[in-house]
Structures are given as C-alpha cells and as structure tokens.
Amino acid sequence: MGLVSIRREGDKMTRQEERIRARRRQRRRQARMVRRVVFGVCLFIILILCIYGHHNHKRVLSLQSEIDRLEQQLKKSKSDSNDLKKQLDELQKELEQKQQELDKKEAALYDDPNKPNVYMTFDDGPSSNTDTILDTLAANNIRATFFCIAQKGEANEKRYQRIVNEGHTIGMHSYTHEYGTVYASLESFEQDVTQISDYIFQMTGVRPKYYRFPGGSSNTVSKVPMKECIRYLNQSGLTYFDWNAQNDDATGKSYTASQLVEHAMKNVKMAGDNVVLLMHDEQTKTATAEALPTLIKRLKNAGYDILPITDKTPLVQHVSKDSVS
C-alpha cells in the first residue's frame, strides 16, 4: 500500500508539473503574440506617419512654390504700376502742353484786343430750336454758351451732347426753372443747383461750372435773399453770369425775327465792349433761331468778336459776387 501510494503521489506531481509547464508555454506564446501585435501596430503607425509626412512635405513644397509665384507676380505688378504711372505722367504733361497750344490758338483766333466782344448766351434749352441754333453756329464757325435746364427725352439728351461735342460752353440755369421751387428756401436752391449739375454731367460727362440765376442775380421774386444764394455759389466754386444786353425775346411780346435782330443790335451797342447777350432757346422761341444768321452777320459787320463764355470772360453780374462776404 505504501508503494502504491507513493507512485500515485508521484504521478500527481508529474501532472501538476506538466500543467505548470503548459501554462508557462501558453503565457510565452501569448507574450510573443502581444509583442508581435505591438510591433505590428508600431510599424503601422510609423508607416502612417511617413505617408503623412511625405504628403505634408509635398504640400509645403507646393505652398512654397505658390508663395514664390505670388512674390514674382507682386514684383511684376509693382513694376507695371510704376510703368503705368510713368505713362500717365507723360500723357498728363502732353495734355497740358496741347492745352496750352490750344489756348494760344484760341487767343489768336478769338481774343483780338482791338475788337469788342459779344458772348451769345441761350437760356432754357435744349429744345427743338436747339438744332437750328447749333446748325447756324456751326455754319458760321461760332461758339456760344447754353445755360440749360433739365429737359427730358431722348432727343434732348442728344442735344446736350451735341452742345458739348461742338465746342460750346454748357452752363446751368436751374433744374426746374420754377421760381417757387428754386427759391423756396436756401436749402431748395442748393438742392436745385446740385440736381442740374448732376443732370448735365450725366448727359454730357462735363461738370458745368457756370450758372445763370433764373430771373438774374437781382431778381425780386426769390423768397431767399439773393446774396445768400450768391454766397453758396461762391463757396461752391461756381461762377454766375447775368447779362447786359438782350434781344427782347422774353418780354412777353411777339416779335418777328427781324425785330429781334434790331433789338439785339441796339442793346449790344449800348452795352460797351464786353457784351453778354441774353437770348432764349425755348420751344416757343422759333423767331430767335430764325434771327440768328442775320444777327451773326450784323455783329461781324459791326466789328464784334463772337465768343463763348470761358474763365477769361469779364464778369457781368447785376449783383457782384464781391459784394457778398
């Protein structure tokens, strides 16, 4: 019995040792598997980082190339800008030179100190009579001044443009020519001047700088003291012209063309050597347009130069701008 017991005990210990060795082998296999998994994961992470790094490197190179391109473009733009500025400066100098030459030619053509001057002015247009007036002026190589109001319609838009394109001076004569509106208040007057200035600029591309008051600077219908209106024009850099002669086409009487010529010549001779002649370019002033060819001929025969208003024109003002502080 003792020997059998000993053998059984020995077999039991042997089985226990085998189980222990088996568990050890299993743990070693698990450990190897864990190491392999960890190694694989690390290898995968390294691979991902390498791919990402390569992509970022390519992106950095691409961005650097784009930056270099933009820097070159900026340098070229600066160079082009400098070249453009130089060209503009040269064109400006050429323009000033041509303008000086033109001024000299105009002075030689128009400004004869030995002759009296007549500045023909036409108020209230454009109208259907404008075309006839412009045709007559062109046929006689004469330039005049048109103090315009806001006349609408495609035909009138073309007339504004024709006035400017044919070398005449375009001025302002209010937007509406309605005394009650224009002179209702100083604010109304200022608004009206802005409106007609913008309207003429819209029609012609020319910003007008000459103004004629509806009724003149000495009118008595304005609800605003005229000196306040004059002060506004002075502060705005605008020059206003009244008149010292007229053809009487706005007296309310119906004169024939020949009568208008006689009235104009009589008033011109009484006005002196610098005459601003008031006439009207309204729809109803057909006789004024018809009288113009004869009037031009009579003025030339009498020794007058017929000129447009410019910055050199002596001021004719019923109320002097210098009387307003």
Rank of each mutant, 00 (worst) to 15 (best):
M1I: 05
L3F: 08
V4L: 14
I6N: 08
I6M: 07
R8M: 12
E9Q: 10
K12P: 00
M13N: 08
E17N: 06
R19L: 15
R21Q: 08
R21N: 05
A22N: 09
R23Y: 10
R23C: 09
R23M: 14
R35S: 14
R35F: 15
R35H: 13
V37H: 06
V37D: 04
V38H: 08
V38A: 14
V41P: 01
I46R: 06
L47G: 13
I48H: 07
I48S: 08
Y52A: 14
H55N: 13
L61Q: 14
I67F: 09
R69F: 10
L70N: 08
E71I: 11
Q73C: 03
K75R: 09
K76T: 14
S81R: 11
N82Q: 12
E90R: 08
L91D: 15
L91R: 07
L95R: 15
E96Y: 09
Q100N: 15
E101V: 10
L102Y: 11
D103N: 13
K104P: 01
K105H: 12
L109H: 13
Y110P: 10
N114I: 12
K115A: 09
T121I: 01
D124E: 08
N129Q: 14
T130H: 06
L134Y: 06
T136M: 06
I142E: 04
F146D: 02
I149C: 10
Q151Y: 05
E154V: 04
A155Q: 10
K158P: 01
R159G: 04
I163N: 02
G167Y: 06
Y175H: 12
H177M: 10
Y179R: 02
E187P: 05
S188E: 05
E190M: 12
Q191F: 10
Q191C: 11
D192G: 06
D192C: 05
Q195H: 11
Q195W: 09
Q195T: 14
S197L: 11
D198C: 09
Y199W: 13
Y199L: 09
Y210T: 04
F213S: 00
G216N: 04
T220Y: 11
S222Y: 10
S222E: 15
V224R: 03
V224W: 03
V224Q: 06
M226D: 14
M226C: 07
Y232L: 06
Y232V: 06
S236D: 12
S236P: 05
S236A: 13
G237T: 13
L238K: 08
Y240E: 07
Q246F: 00
D248G: 00
D248M: 01
A250H: 06
T251D: 09
G252N: 00
S254I: 07
Y255D: 01
T256Q: 08
L260E: 01
L260F: 03
A264Y: 01
M265G: 01
K266L: 00
V268I: 02
K269F: 01
K269Q: 02
N274C: 03
V276Y: 01
V276C: 02
L278D: 00
P293G: 11
L295E: 00
I296K: 03
I296Q: 04
I296P: 01
K297H: 04
L299V: 00
Y304R: 03
T310A: 09
P314I: 02
L315K: 10
L315D: 02
Q317T: 04
H318D: 09
V319M: 08
